[in-house]
């Protein structure tokens, strides 16, 4: 992998490129190789409850996908086929009964569970699908600034003095106002941490205001609660959350449910802008029409793996598609044959 010159090879890592795909630094922004995810479960057809044996249920197998700088890659697949599971594993969220193998490179470095967790929000950000992902009881401005979790305050304290402060940090986070010193032990370090935290918070507030301005959100939106937002505003707030810590890759999980194609295109213009500025976007969707109109490359997800990773242009003609499922998808589109084989196991 390291000896390959990405710029020169037209087709590598099992995929084809689009015009906007760039290899900054000679590698992919993100590359997933041979990802396997399986879950330890109990046999579902065991004769009795007590005799059920543990079995491995394989959900994702041999999955490869790459995200280049400057492009939107769409992963298209049926609902319930494990696309969200892929998003979760790229963010380093693993269920306790999951077994995950494979390799993930981020910006040239090989990742493991711990480093993926570190990148969460600081290199790879998730844009979830709906307003339901915001805390309904916290004003959106505060949520975007990210002071909803005690660990971000703890981090501030750690920066000042990694050893001494961390014990006190939890007590700081418990008090709503940093000036309230009732439950903060009165040491010099704590005061230092508090001051640092205050500055840090002011900085984050400024950044949040800047982002709101960039995405046409009024300054009074910051003091609204999530239920007061329209669908479009909520979408932009979620995007601002994702952009707070300068990510390089955004994973968008079904970001446009219920929007018609025109509105969805408007929604995705923000992602386009992010990609044009050198970022990479992984768009997870079931809507192939949408994927074909906004993405640069499309990865067809079927039966737990990516069966084909190709440029959008190749969807103009079914002969340019290599896998039978991609061809079937082409034929199923209303503008083409609108044909799907009937019966349950249509494509097996």
């Amino acid at each position: 992998m390291l000896t390959l010159n990405h710029e020169l090879e037209q087709s590598h890592h099992h995929h084809k490129h689009a015009n906007t795909s760039h290899h900054v630094g000679g590698h992919h922004l993100m590359q997933v190789e041979n990802l396997n995810i399986s879950f330890t479960m109990y046999e579902s057809d065991a004769r009795s409850y007590f005799n059920a044996k543990q079995v491995q249920s394989n959900v994702i197998h041999d999955l490869c996908i790459g995200v280049h700088s400057g492009e939107i890659v769409a992963i298209v697949g049926a609902s319930g086929s494990g696309k969200t599971l892929l998003a979760d594993s790229l963010m380093g969220h693993f269920e306790p009964n999951a077994t995950v193998t494979g390799s993930i490179w981020f910006d040239g470095d090989k990742m493991d569970a711990a480093s993926l967790k570190k990148l969460r929000g600081h290199g790879i950000s998730l844009v979830p699908q709906s307003v339901n992902f915001l805390d309904p009881l916290i004003k959106v401005g505060k949520q975007v600034q990210g002071f909803t979790k005690s660990n971000s305050i703890k981090k501030c304290a750690d920066k000042v003095s990694p050893k001494n402060i961390s014990n006190n940090a939890s007590s700081i986070s418990n008090s709503d106002d940093a000036n309230n010193s009732d439950d903060v032990s009165n040491t010099g370090n704590t005061n230092k941490a508090r001051r640092f935290f205050k500055e840090h918070r002011a900085q984050r507030a400024k950044l949040q205001a800047k982002l709101f301005e960039r995405y046409n959100l009024n300054s009074n939106v910051a003091s609204l609660y999530p239920f007061e937002l329209s669908g479009g505003m909520a979408r932009r707030v979620l995007l601002c959350c994702a952009l707070m810590d300068n990510p390089k890759v955004i994973i968008a999980d079904e970001p446009t449910p219920g929007l018609d194609l025109e509105l969805a295109k408007v929604a995705l213009a923000d992602f386009r802008q992010f990609a044009n500025d050198g970022g990479g976007v992984l768009l997870i969707t079931h809507d192939i029409e949408l994927a074909l109109s906004v993405a640069d490359r499309v990865a067809v997800f079927y039966d737990g793996t990516v069966v084909e990773e190709t440029a959008v242009a190749n969807f103009a003609n079914p002969d340019l598609l290599s896998h039978p499922f991609s061809k079937a998808l082409w034929h199923a589109l209303p503008e083409h044959d609108f044909f799907a084989p009937t019966g349950g196991d249509a494509l097996s």
Binding site: V76, A78, S79, H286, L329, A340, P341, T342, L347
Partner: peptide, 14 residues
């Protein structure tokens, strides 16, 4: 709306 293209085609066909 929330179905993939294949399921959509199949359902409408029926």
């Amino acid at each position: 709306t929330m179905l993939d293209a294949l399921t959509q085609a199949q359902i409408w066909q029926v």
